[in-house]
Simulated assay, not measured.
Amino acid sequence: MQYLKDEVRDKIRKEAIKEFRTVGYKGASIRTIASNSNTSVGNLYKYFDSKEALYEDIIGSVYNRLMNYINQFHEVELNDKACNVFYKLTEEVTGIFKESSLEIAILLNKSQGSKYENCKNTFIDFVTKIVTDIMCYHLSTQGKVLQDNFLIYLLANNLVESISIIVDQKNDGEEVRSLILSIIDILYKDIEKKLNV
């Protein structure tokens, strides 16, 4: 029985990342990945059953880590201390962007044809819901009501698209993290005034 070698697997993953980054999931070729990995297509399939399995190996863990933190946001009880918890979770999420900016660039910009092709909408919906919930709670403590969350939805779209551009254009993890935090500050600082409540 032939044992799978970590070096070969790592080389396949490295070349697959390049291929997915360049042409996306839909355009990626197993033949090209195998050739660039100095292995045969048959040997590549000993490590990964399909292009989907290879993509999942690269993107799945990062996506799952992000979703784990998203689920933690949903579990936070809204009260006066919730903002501190949200800031801490935001730091954790931006830490993932710092560590895995290349994989996230692929996830957000190159997932067409994969099971992750609608991930941007998932993230936009999440940001919209969390910010809406926070604003509704905050306004309720002042006897006010949020009439409409359309502006919050627009801001969420801008945030996710900005992050997509940042991870696509910038390679340094710390710079990615810093830029994302700056965009969050620009979009959401004094949001109550922006909402005209």
Rank of each mutant, 00 (worst) to 15 (best):
T128F: 05
S40A: 04
Q147P: 06
V131K: 10
G113C: 04
L54P: 03
V41Q: 11
F86W: 10
Y45N: 00
R65G: 07
Q72F: 11
Y116I: 01
T141H: 07
C83H: 14
Y87L: 12
D80T: 13
K98T: 04
I58C: 08
M67L: 14
R65D: 14
I130R: 09
L78I: 11
N84S: 12
L44K: 06
K88M: 15
C83V: 15
I96N: 04
E56I: 08
R65C: 09
E77F: 08
I130G: 05
L44S: 08
K88I: 13
V41G: 05
S50R: 03
K46M: 12
F126M: 08
E52G: 03
C119I: 15
I70V: 14
S101Q: 10
F126E: 06
N109M: 03
E56N: 10
Q112N: 00
E117H: 02
H138N: 12
K81Q: 11
V131G: 01
N43V: 07
K46Y: 09
V62A: 13
L139W: 02
K144E: 14
D125Y: 07
L107I: 08
G42M: 12
F126L: 05
E103A: 02
E99I: 06
L146V: 09
K51F: 02
I58V: 13
N84I: 09
S40R: 02
L146K: 06
N109P: 01
A82S: 15
L54E: 02
C83Q: 15
G95V: 09
D49W: 10
D125P: 02
S111C: 04
L102R: 13
V85Q: 12
D80W: 14
A105W: 02
N68L: 09
E117L: 00
V62M: 11
S111H: 03
S40N: 05
V62R: 08
Y116C: 00
F73V: 03
G42N: 14
E56D: 13
H138C: 11
H74D: 15
N38T: 11
L139K: 06
A53E: 12
E52W: 01
N118W: 05
L146P: 05
Q72I: 08
G95E: 12
D57V: 10
V131E: 07
I106A: 01
H74G: 09
N84A: 12
Q112E: 04
N38L: 12
S114H: 00
A53V: 09
L89Q: 07
E56S: 08
K81V: 06
N109I: 04
E99V: 05
E117F: 01
K51H: 06
T39G: 07
I134A: 14
S50P: 01
M67S: 14
H74L: 11
